[in-house]
Nucleic acid binder design. Structure first.
Length: 244
DNA sequence: ACAATATCCTGCGAGC
DNA sequence: TGCTCGCAGGATATTG
C-alpha cells in the first residue's frame, strides 16, 4: 500500500533515472511528491500525475508481467512499467496540478508542531486514527503508518481529538516525523505488492509493531494486538499500551 | 461534523 | 482439489 514513504522512495529513485529524458516529445524537468501523488513535471509546463492506490508499482526497466497496465517509453529506449494487480491506480497528464493541491492538507513531513496543533483544534470531535488518514487533514498517511504512529505514541486509535493532552498531541507529531523518516530510509514497507522503482521490496515491514500483527503479542508489553473497524478501515493497536 | 456504507478491483487465504 | 466467501484499503460519493 504505497503511502508517503513508498511514493517518496520511488520519486527519489526515478528522479536519478529519468530527469532530462523525453516522454512523448516532452522533456522531464523534475519529479515532485504531494501526499501520495507522484508528479512528473515537463519543461513545457504540463505534468504527468500518478497515483498508485493500493497495488500500483512503478518499475524502471523491469520486465513486463500480466499486471503491466502501461509502459512509459523514453527517448533513449529506457522504459517505466506501471504494474497494478487491482487496477485502481491511475495516471493523467494535466496542465496544472492545482486540482491535486486543492484536495490535500499540509505535507506530513513539512507541517510544524504549531500547524499540527492548529489543524487538530478544528476537528475536536474526530477520532484520531481516521483523521490522520484524512488527506485533507494531513497528506501522506495511510493505514500502515497511522497504526504505527499511534502505537509509538501510545494513543488509542479511537480517541477523540478533544480528549488528547498537549503531551499526547506532541507525541503523535514527533512519532509521525520519526516513523516516516525511518520508513523512507528503509525504502518503504512491502506488505504484499509494493516494490520500489528498482523492483525491490521495502524493508520497513520488519519494524512494524502493530500493522497486520493482530492476534500476536505486543512487542512492548506482551498483550495481544487487537483489530477493530474505524471509519470503515481496520485499525490495529495494543489494548494495554494504547488504552482508551 | 462525524460515521457508516458503497464503489472501484482482484489476489489470497480460510473453510467446507 | 476446488469452490465460495470475506478481506485487504486509497479515494470519492452518498446517506444517516
Amino acid at each position: 500500500m504505497p503511502e508517503l514513504p513508498e511514493v517518496e522512495t520511488i520519486r527519489r529513485q526515478l528522479a536519478r533515472k529519468i530527469i532530462g529524458k523525453r516522454l512523448d516529445k516532452k522533456t522531464i524537468k523534475g519529479l515532485r511528491r504531494r501526499g501520495k501523488f507522484l508528479i512528473i513535471d515537463f519543461k513545457e509546463g504540463s505534468s504527468l500525475v500518478i497515483h498508485l492506490k493500493l497495488t500500483g508499482q512503478l518499475v524502471f526497466n523491469g520486465r513486463p508481467n500480466k499486471y503491466t497496465r502501461h509502459i512509459f517509453k523514453f527517448n533513449d529506449n529506457s522504459q517505466l512499467l506501471f504494474n497494478d494487480a487491482r487496477k485502481l491506480g491511475w495516471w493523467k497528464v494535466v496542465e496544472s496540478s492545482d486540482n491535486i493541491e486543492k484536495r490535500l492538507g499540509p505535507e506530513a513531513l513539512k507541517i510544524s508542531l504549531a500547524g499540527f496543533e492548529k489543524a487538530l483544534l478544528k476537528r475536536p470531535q474526530a477520532r484520531i486514527k481516521p483523521l490522520l488518514m484524512d488527506q485533507k487533514f494531513i497528506a501522506g498517511l495511510g493505514n500502515i503508518y497511522s497504526d504505527e504512529i499511534l502505537f509509538a505514541a501510545r494513543i488509542n486509535p479511537s480517541r477523540r481529538v478533544k480528549t488528547l493532552s498537549g503531551g499526547e498531541r506532541k507525541r503523535i507529531y514527533e512519532n509521525m516525523a520519526e516513523i516516516l523518516k525511518a520508513a523512507i530510509n528503509s525504502k518503504g514497507s512491502s506488505v504484499r505488492y509494493y516494490l520500489d522503482a528498482g523492483g525491490k521490496k521495502g524493508a520497513y515491514v520488519k519494524y512494524h509493531n502493530v500493522y497486520q500483527r493482530d492476534g500476536k503479542k505486543c512487542l512492548r508489553c506482551g498483550a495481544t494486538i487487537k483489530k477493530i473497524k474505524l471509519g470503515g478501515r481496520s485499525a490495529r493497536f495494543c489494548p494495554n499500551c494504547q488504552k482508551p
